[in-house]
Design a protein around this nucleic acid. Structure first.
Length: 216
DNA sequence: GGTCCGATAGGCT
DNA sequence: GCCTATCGGACCG
């Protein structure tokens, strides 16, 4: 596939774990009928998952192969994978890598830097400005993203993704285990989650709920 | 500040 | 049937 710009080219040639640091400090803009909202990304989580990846990743939606739901992740980089979860929330991933791999970065949190009033109206429950996009489902809500945005290109209207010029310096980059994934692939064995050190908009870490009570 | 829990629907075994 | 890449409100300190 022909890349539309340098950022697209970068995503096509890197899988999610390598692309994740360049998504920190990146901006994603969505211009809806209601107006534009832009989020500066402060926290992401990498997912690999398909059998074509270097590491097995049972935590990924793509781990068991391509289905109707996760098909977008198996396509080339530069598209949005939006899925519905917990019966009420949407989460968004930036698809990374080449077609045939199911590599993607879940957008976990960000800072609203354009369209604050619109974001606030979409996020009535948010008490403070840092809560507008603090969490993956909150971020999609602030941006006004839903089922209809699954599979849309992130470098074409109504979406505009701009990567950071460079990965954060080690001083500003933190990594850790996954949020909300239990069992193998939960990620204590690998740093899947990346965030900007000390940023107030990063979601508060909650360990995954164990599948069964720990043996005494 | 932390921690518990209900809501609610779709995917997958 | 069971689990989920979550959130927000209730409650406790």
């Amino acid at each position: 596939m022909h890349p539309v710009n340098a950022d697209h080219n970068f995503l096509l040639h890197h899988h999610s774990v390598d692309a994740a640091p360049r998504l920190l400090g990146a901006t994603l803009r969505h211009e809806s009928d209601e107006g534009p909202v832009t989020v500066r990304i402060t926290e992401v989580e990498a997912y690999l998952g398909s059998q074509t990846s270097d590491f097995p990743d049972p935590g990924s939606h793509g781990f068991r192969g391509k289905t109707n739901r996760n098909a977008v992740m198996f396509g080339p980089a530069g598209f949005l994978y939006v899925y519905f979860t917990y019966g009420m929330h949407y989460c968004a991933n930036i698809v990374c890598g080449t077609a045939g791999t199911s590599s993607g970065c879940l957008l976990r949190a960000g800072e609203v830097i354009e369209g604050r009033e619109l974001a606030k109206s979409r996020r009535a429950a948010a008490k403070k400005e840092v809560e507008l996009a603090k969490g993956p489902a909150r971020l999609t809500q602030a941006l006004g993203l839903g089922r209809e945005h699954n599979g849309l290109p992130v470098f074409e209207s109504p979406l505009t993704l701009r990567l950071a010029d460079a990965a954060p310096s080690p001083q500003h980059l933190s990594t850790g285990p996954r949020v909300g994934v239990s069992g193998p692939g939960g990620g204590h064995e690998y740093p899947w989650r990346f965030w900007l050190s000390g940023d107030k908009t990063v979601s508060t870490y909650r360990p995954a709920k164990p599948r069964q009570a720990p043996a005494v």
